[in-house]
Design a protein around this nucleic acid. Structure first.
Length: 236
DNA sequence: GTCCCGAAAC
DNA sequence: GTTTCAGGAC
């Protein structure tokens, strides 16, 4: 069945002569506590957005692109208008000038150009309404590791992590890791995120991290007072 | 690693 | 004025 999954990852396979960063039993125990708290938090305080409810992969993909380095509340009206008007990439491209105007309030002009590249690719290579379950979405221009993880976990319940700045911040704080450089591709972060999503509900785990980072473990002044994992957390 | 370089929040 | 925001391409 699933053929091309796990193309390069190392799921606990040490392959290294010296100490490759494998999670210890203690690490996993701590992460299990974090995961349980995240799912509980998500159940009680999750944010509600239309792209959280849709099963339209095209709309979901457009949401991920609009949300790139842009606040969710800022995306909301644009997403509504876009999805209300267009159901396929061809539809949107046929009305390009209007789309460009709709995206303008989001800022980041270079990102909007990337969206048009994605739309063109979808129109030319994925004219089929249904997204093949086996398709590797990272082949789509504009879809990187993060979006691929979020899309696959939501659409197919695949246990793929979606590591964004929130995930990096939360995991670094929780385990006392230094936030230096591009932590997105750090094996320490990847292994921890992979362990967190290895559950029956990977999408909920991915989304809970986003909401937890937006509402509690914020970048500026985290609300450690009301944090459910304040005790095991190593952030001071 | 580096660049992309915009609106909103602080 | 500075930081932050559901990152991705090179």
């Amino acid at each position: 069945m699933r053929r091309s999954l796990h193309s390069g990852e190392n799921e606990g396979g040490s392959r290294g002569r010296h100490s490759s960063p494998i999670l210890s039993a203690a690490d996993k125990h701590r992460l299990a506590i974090l995961r349980r708290a995240l799912l509980q938090f998500f159940e009680e305080h999750h944010r509600s957005y239309p792209w959280r409810r849709t099963k339209n992969w095209f709309h979901l993909l457009m949401a991920e692109m609009m949300l790139r380095r842009t606040r969710a509340d800022q995306v909301l009206p644009v997403y509504k208008e876009f999805t209300d008007r267009y159901r396929t990439a061809a539809d949107a491209l046929a009305d390009g000038a209007t789309v460009r105007e709709m995206l303008r309030p989001l800022g980041l002009g270079w990102r909007n150009e990337a969206i048009f590249d994605t739309l063109a690719y979808l129109r030319d290579n994925m004219a089929v309404r249904r997204l093949p379950p086996e398709a590797d979405m990272i082949a789509i221009p504009g879809v990187g590791e993060y979006s691929n993880g979020m899309l696959r976990s939501i659409l197919f319940a695949d246990r793929v992590a979606a590591i964004d700045t929130n995930v990096v911040r939360i995991l670094c704080r929780f385990d006392g890791l230094p936030e230096k450089g591009e932590m997105r591709r750090s094996p320490l972060i990847k292994e921890r995120a992979a362990y967190l999503v290895d559950t029956e509900h990977p999408a909920q785990v991915n989304l809970s991290l986003i909401d937890f980072g937006a509402l509690v473990c914020t970048a500026r002044s985290p609300d450690c007072e009301h944090c459910p994992v304040r005790r095991p957390c190593r952030y001071s």
